[in-house]
Every structure is written in structure tokens, then in C-alpha cells.
Nucleic acid binder design. Structure first.
Length: 796
DNA sequence: CAGTGAGCGAGCTTCCGCTTGACTT
């Protein structure tokens, strides 16, 4: 007989806790939720007061079976899932599913994994909080209702397999609205004037004009005036300032900093953090809390004292600012703060060091600054030049950590200014006026989207990364780089008593790893906002969260709350199904100058397209797909007509047509029903027959080296050399070659056996039978993405 | 790998939050 069984959510946590508790306690993990709504249909019985239909999912059956067995053998079961809504529900589900005797169940909670915290928890058990469980059920049921009623509307009215939900649809909306802001943004130009002066001690002093000047005439006028002006220092102001360290990491801030400082994607960060957590190096990585345990603060204190001295120490407790934070865990911190580095992969080391620095810095003193402002008057004009400088008097926490920002056009670092006195005159070395342009708000990165979602209280630490994947998988959004475009700007310089004006070039608007909404994302967003405004509202989550709180406090019945929401919502769904027309984002672009038929753009069965004519016409309409980077929303008639110039027939080669076109994988040449991709430098609109033949021959040569063996008896069957080694190709299907077989030695009969075996197992795959195909040896894919830092302002 | 192109066919897709593996085209 086991004395005590403790159940927590995470296996890594179970291991740690077991060490603290000693022999009488066995600690197991539930691996998160063990029960969920049935996936068939809604999983909710609407008529029975929204009764949830819970089932144990296939992949949780083994866990449940094991826990059930151990629980039977235990005298006492301690349900130690997290102290938040979801955790309470997990405890409740465990109670139900494991069929536990209430007499031998105790519910305990702790939000730090320390010996004291756990022992204290054991001494203060409580009962399961049914109200909190009900709040979770309401949350779960609401999300299911929204997701499973809205998605089918999209299947009917927009496109099959699409999805909508309380979280993902708002994430897409943020991106779509931002994209439109950017598309509609009218950039205005202005002049930034700055002077390089020299003091009478011959030191350099850089200062900017106090305001931007809009017109080039006025700029020119001012800069000419400067030629004859004297410059007088009218004011020198020194002000102390300070900077405080940021709070320790939560999931969202870790994702943001790892993205800015290390170039990690949100999911990469989480995967690496998971590794660090599993090997006991950091605390739990899915948290919204900025709290550190007193033990951790103590350890940080010792570390700071030993390493930097007392002057650098200032311990603090941070308070969370984010809406809806549930604070079931600590902040993300190193388990052992005396370890400044850890072993592991390069990325693990880097992420660990980031966490270590941030944690230590959070317990260090403020940085002390001195800000200096020098005002320089122009004798013949009302404007003045302002020089600002910042000197670090005491570095404090900056010794170990500096938080980055998302700002793209950050000011150049301001350093020390030369010592000057009020009343002193200075001369100019040069005065420069550069034409600058106002910026639209920036596009979101994965990390800045997470930040925004967190601010709105939408989504949880465990869902930020999956949400970003979902909206990309559905095709609503792409993450990619986009090249910038060239822009001219005017530049004046006053030097050696002479004003010169010139025109310069720069590249602007290049984007790296940004999120761009696609046409389908925009169409779905517009459809949902038109028909389900309430749910797409940025405050929807916040307002239902308030009601969940009321349920948790026992002030509101969960099924009443759901009923109040569902009745009007469901009516809206039915109305929309009945009354709204199919939504494909159709726009009329104009008239085709050749045929006079209308040219329209919309989402077709294979993605966004343009077409000439309508289906009512006698002649079938002509179609062409939009190219990457083009949007239904912005494409115009000329661009659309350009798309119809392809496919283009170049002529004949070996008595077969040579055609050039643009496909899913970019521009290609088709000849004898074979496809050859164009090279980057080839333009599909201009390429000639000669070049096309060159490409065709090149491809043939490549294919020849690709073929290992062809059987004369059956030319459909080929043994080819592919990216992952040799494989069998048969009637457009590919098959692996079993381990240990030499591809060149294969006979036709043997090949056929492999094909037979594979097709058979494909059928059984649909059932529950496990795949028993020989494992294939494939070299691990090592497509390392370059994580070079984003290019700053490119000029000249 | 691949280029199609607009409602009778048959069946499927989908949510959010907890947690880790299994498994590699």
C-alpha cells in the first residue's frame, strides 16, 4: 500500500517534488488535462442546459489507466494541479475520472517549487473549488460553441476547412487592420536639420534643429541664413535621471526579448525553454507571473553581493500589469541563480544566459544618469539648435542587462557632451538638412503580436505559440521577408561657406520576418466582423472574463451565463447562414480594353485570382492567379491585365510547344509536359525561346543523373535519387526503399513488392492499427534559417 | 512537386488550454 499519491500537471515538476517529499509520497503527473469535450459534433448538449460531453482522449487513456491503478492502492490522493482555473478543473476531472473517494482526496496548491512552499501546502489542504471549476467549464464551453459554430459558417460562405475562434480571429483582425493602416498611410516628407559645431576649445558638438521643417523652400532659406549667422549658447541644463530594471520574464516577455536579441521565433523560444525546464535548469516556462520566490530573491542577492558588491543590490517584488493574469507559477528564472551558464546546445546556452541576466538585473539597483540639454540660438532666425547628451553616472543593473525595444528608428546613442558655458559662441563645421519621411505603424512580428494579445488579455501563455501557428496554417497570414523599394530624398549641406543641394537614393520599407495577412485572412476577417462584430471586438474576451470571475466567485451560474451568450449568438449564426451571400472578396477592377468585358478580382477555388468576363458569357472567362505580394484589395486594372500575358507560347522545340507561365512555385517553362523552373534572373514576360531551351537541356542533364534504374518491362517504375536518398517512383507515387537494401540491386519484382506492401499499410493506417513499415533512414533536415539582425535604416 | 478555374454526387474540416512526446516529407 502506498501512503500518499500526489498528482501534478507536469512530469518534470513531479520529479522535483518527489525529492522534497520523501519516501511516503509518490508523485505522478497527469500531463495536463485528462478529459475534454467530445470532438464529434459539438460535445455539448444544448437542450440539457449545456451539459458538457466529456471523454478521455485516445492519447490520455494510458495515463488515466496508470493513475487509476496507483490511486486505488494509495491511502491518500493529493491533487496538486496548478492554482488557476484550468488547474482546478484538472483536479476536478481527476476526481471524477479516477473515481476517487472524497474521503481520501485532498486538494493542495503552491506556486513555487520549493520545499517550504510544498510542505506548507501539505499542511493546508482544502476542498475542490466547484465555482472555479464551473468558471473553467464556462470558458471551455464558450470557446467550443464559438469555434464549432463559426467555422462551419466559413466553410459554407467562404471556403472549406477554415476556422474561427475567440482568440485566433482577433489575432488575424489585429494583423488585417494594421495592414490596412499601412496600405492607406500617406507618408509625408519633412526636413531634419542638424548642425555639427565646434566649441572654442575645438571640441565637436552635434545639435538638431528644435523642430522639423515641412517645405523645402523654407529649409533652403534657413540653411542659407545659417551661412551668415552667429551661434550662441543660451542655455545649459543638467538633470539627473534614472532607469529601472524590467521585471523578470513571463512567457510573453521572454518571447519578445528572445526574438529581438536572439532572433528566435516564438515557437523556437518555447521549445528551447522546454528543454531547459525539463533538465531542471529553469522554472516553468508557461507563466504570466513576474513573481520570484523569496528563496530566489535571496539567491540573487547573494550572487549580486559576491559578484558586484552592495552598491548594486536592490531587491524588489514586481507586480503583474497584464490583464487576466492568473499567476499560478513563478516568473521564468534559473533554478540555481549561482549558475551563470549551463551546458547544452548553443541556443539553450544563449536563452539561459538571457534568463539569468534578466533575473539578476531585476534585483539590482537603478542606473543613475545625467541628462544635459544645450540650446544654441541662431542670430538671424527664431529657430534654435538643441544638443542632448546622456551620461551614465552609475551603471547599476545595466552592468548585466539592457532591455531592447521594438522601435525601428531608435535615436543614435547619446553620449557625453563637451563642457560649454552659457553665453559662449560656437562656429559651425557643417549644417545638414536631410529630407525624411513619416513612418506608418510597423507590421507585427510574431513577438509583437503576442505582446499585443497579452495586453488585450487574449490567449494564455500556453497558447501564444500555437495560435501563431494556427493562423499561418490556415493561410490567413504569412511570415516572410519583403524587399524594400527605392526612394529619393533631398539633401542640403552647408560647408565652407557654401550651400550644396543633392538628390540621394535609399532603400526603404524592407521587412524581415514580419506577419502579412493574406487575401483569405482579409476576406474571412471582413466576413466575421460584418456578421459577428461582438465576438471580433477586442473587448469580447475581457468582458467574458469578467463573467467567468463572477462564476468563480459564486455570483453567477455558469449555464445561465452561457445561455445568455448562446441564444443571440446562435441566432446570428442561423441568420448569417440563411441571408449572407458567399464572400469571396470580389472587386471590379475595370474593363478589358481588348474585349470590353469586365475584369474582376476575387478568391477562386485555388486562391486569389483575376478574371476577364463572366460565367454568363458564351465564351469561358479567362483566369489568372495573383502573384506573391499582390493583394485583392490593392490590385489595379493594369496589374491585373499584366497577369494575363502569361502563359506565353515561345515557339516549338523538338516539335513540341514551349510555354512559359507562373505557377505555385514561381515562373516555369513547360515543354513536352515537363516543367522547368526559371532562374532568379529570368523574367517570364521577356524570356525567349533560346534561353528556354537552355533551361530545358539543363534540367534534362540533371534528371539523367537523378535516375538510378529504369525497367524496360515497366517504364512507369523508376528508381530515382532524391533529396532523401534513393526512392522508387511509380505512377506519380513515391515509395521508400527498405533499410539495408542497395537501390541498384533491386529487381522489378522486389520493387513491386515494396509498392504492394506500402499501399496495403496505407489502407490500415486509416484504422487504429499502427504503422509497421520499415523505418526509413533519412538525414536530419538541417535547413538553418539565418538569424541575422534586422537591417537598420539603409541609406545612400 | 506543377496549373487547374464557379452549387445535386461523399465525407471531412473546426475551438482554447493544460501537458509532452512520436515522427520525420
Amino acid at each position: 500500500m502506498i501512503e500518499n499519491l500526489v498528482i501534478v500537471e507536469s512530469p518534470a515538476k513531479a520529479k522535483t517534488i518527489e525529492k522534497f517529499l520523501g519516501k511516503d509520497f509518490q508523485v505522478k503527473s497527469s500531463f495536463g488535462h485528462i478529459r475534454d469535450l467530445a470532438k464529434k459534433n459539438l460535445g455539448i448538449e444544448i437542450e440539457k442546459n449545456y451539459e458538457p460531453q466529456y471523454i478521455v482522449p485516445e492519447d490520455k487513456k494510458a495515463v488515466v489507466k496508470e493513475l487509476k491503478k496507483i490511486a486505488k492502492e494509495s491511502k491518500l490522493v493529493w491533487l496538486a494541479s496548478d492554482e488557476d482555473r484550468e488547474g482546478e478543473a484538472i483536479a476536478w476531472h481527476l476526481m471524477k475520472v479516477l473515481d476517487l473517494d472524497p474521503q481520501k482526496v485532498k486538494r493542495i496548491v503552491f506556486h513555487e517549487i520549493t520545499k517550504e512552499a510544498i510542505q506548507k501546502a501539505i499542511q493546508n489542504p482544502r476542498a475542490i473549488d466547484e465555482n472555479l471549476v464551473n468558471a473553467q467549464q464556462a470558458r471551455r464551453v464558450l470557446d467550443r460553441l464559438v469555434g464549432f459554430e463559426l467555422s462551419p459558417v466559413l466553410w459554407k460562405k467562404v471556403k472549406p476547412s477554415l476556422s474561427a475562434g475567440r482568440v485566433q480571429s482577433v489575432a488575424v483582425k489585429l494583423l488585417v487592420e494594421r495592414e490596412r493602416e499601412i496600405l492607406n498611410f500617406k507618408s509625408e516628407s519633412y526636413y531634419k536639420i542638424s548642425g555639427l559645431f565646434k566649441t572654442n576649445k575645438n571640441q565637436e558638438l552635434k545639435a538638431d534643429l528644435s523642430e522639423r521643417i515641412k517645405s523645402s523652400d523654407k529649409t533652403e532659406e534657413l540653411i542659407k541664413k545659417c551661412k551668415d549667422a552667429t551661434f550662441n549658447i543660451v542655455n545649459v541644463v543638467k538633470k539627473p535621471g534614472k532607469k529601472s530594471p524590467a521585471a523578470p520574464f513571463t512567457t510573453s516577455t521572454l518571447q519578445q526579448e528572445a526574438s529581438r536579441k536572439l532572433g528566435f521565433s516564438v515557437s523556437q523560444t518555447m521549445a528551447i525553454a522546454q528543454k531547459l525546464y525539463e533538465s531542471g535548469k529553469i522554472t516553468y516556462m508557461r507563466t504570466d507571473s513576474v513573481n520570484l520566490s523569496s528563496m530566489a530573491i535571496g539567491a540573487a542577492k547573494n550572487m549580486i553581493l559576491a559578484e558586484y558588491g552592495e552598491k548594486y543590490l536592490k531587491t524588489r517584488n514586481f507586480k503583474t500589469k497584464s490583464k487576466g493574469a492568473q499567476e499560478a507559477h513563478e516568473a521564468i528564472r534559473p533554478t540555481f541563480l549561482d549558475k551563470q551558464t549551463v551546458s547544452g546546445t548553443d541556443r539553450e546556452k544563449k536563452l539561459y544566459e538571457l534568463i539569468w541576466k534578466r533575473t539578476i538585473a531585476s534585483q539590482m539597483s537603478e542606473a543613475q544618469l545625467e541628462k544635459t540639454t544645450i540650446t544654441i540660438d541662431i542670430s538671424n532666425d527664431d529657430h534654435s539648435f538643441i544638443a542632448t547628451g546622456e551620461v551614465l553616472k552609475f551603471d547599476g543593473f545595466l552592468k548585466v542587462y539592457f532591455e531592447s525595444t521594438d522601435e525601428e528608428n531608435e535615436e543614435e546613442t547619446k553620449g557625453l557632451l563637451p563642457a560649454v558655458n552659457k553665453g559662449e559662441n560656437v562656429d559651425y563645421n557643417s549644417i545638414i538638412a536631410v529630407e525624411r519621411f513619416t513612418y506608418s505603424p510597423p507590421r507585427y512580428t510574431e513577438a509583437s503580436l503576442v505582446k499585443k494579445l497579452e495586453e488585450l488579455g487574449i490567449g494564455r501563455p500556453s497558447t501564444y505559440a500555437p495560435t501563431i501557428s494556427t493562423i499561418q496554417n490556415r493561410g490567413y497570414v504569412v511570415k516572410e521577408d519583403r524587399p524594400g523599394r527605392e526612394r529619393h530624398y533631398i539633401y542640403y549641406i552647408l560647408e565652407n561657406n557654401e550651400v550644396r543641394k543633392s538628390k540621394k537614393k535609399e532603400i526603404t520599407g524592407a521587412e524581415k520576418n514580419k506577419l502579412f495577412p493574406n487575401d483569405i485572412g482579409m476576406v474571412v476577417n471582413d466576413f466575421l466582423t460584418d456578421n459577428f462584430e461582438d465576438i471580433l471586438n477586442y473587448n469580447f474576451t475581457a468582458s467574458v472574463e469578467e463573467e467567468f470571475d463572477d462564476i468563480a466567485n459564486g455570483k453567477l451560474s455558469w449555464s445561465k451565463m452561457i445561455d445568455k451568450f448562446y441564444k443571440p449568438f446562435h441566432k446570428g449564426v442561423e441568420d448569417t447562414l440563411e441571408n449572407s451571400t458567399r464572400s469571396v472578396g470580389e472587386r471590379i477592377l475595370g474593363e478589358d480594353p481588348v474585349t470590353g468585358k469586365p475584369v474582376t478580382a476575387k478568391i477562386g477555388p485555388y486562391g486569389p485570382m483575376v478574371q476577364i468576363g463572366t460565367k454568363e458569357d458564351e465564351e469561358k472567362p479567362k483566369f489568372a492567379s495573383l502573384q506573391r505580394g499582390q493583394l485583392l484589395e490593392t490590385i489595379n486594372l493594369e496589374e491585373a491585365l499584366e497577369l494575363f500575358k502569361l502563359p506565353r507560347e515561345l515557339g516549338m522545340y523538338e516539335e513540341k510547344k514551349v510555354v512559359v507561365a507562373i505557377g505555385r512555385f514561381g515562373p516555369y517553362v513547360r515543354h513536352d509536359s515537363k516543367f522547368v523552373s526559371l532562374k532568379k534572373e529570368d523574367n517570364p514576360y521577356k524570356i525567349d525561346l533560346e534561353r528556354a531551351i537552355e533551361l530545358i537541356e539543363e534540367k534534362r542533364e540533371k534528371d539523367r543523373s537523378k535516375t538510378i534504374k529504369i525497367f524496360e518491362e515497366d517504364t512507369d517504375l523508376q528508381i530515382l535519387n532524391g533529396r532523401w536518398g534513393p526512392y522508387i517512383s511509380y505512377k506519380k507515387k513515391n515509395f521508400r526503399i527498405p533499410k539495408g537494401t542497395n537501390a541498384e540491386d533491386l529487381s522489378l519484382k522486389h520493387c513491386m513488392e515494396i509498392i504492394e506492401g506500402n499501399t496495403k499499410s496505407e489502407k490500415t493506417k486509416k484504422g487504429t492499427a499502427k504503422k509497421t513499415v520499415a523505418k526509413k533512414v533519412t538525414p536530419k533536415k538541417t535547413t538553418k534559417k539565418k538569424t541575422t539582425a534586422t537591417k537598420k535604416k539603409t541609406s545612400k
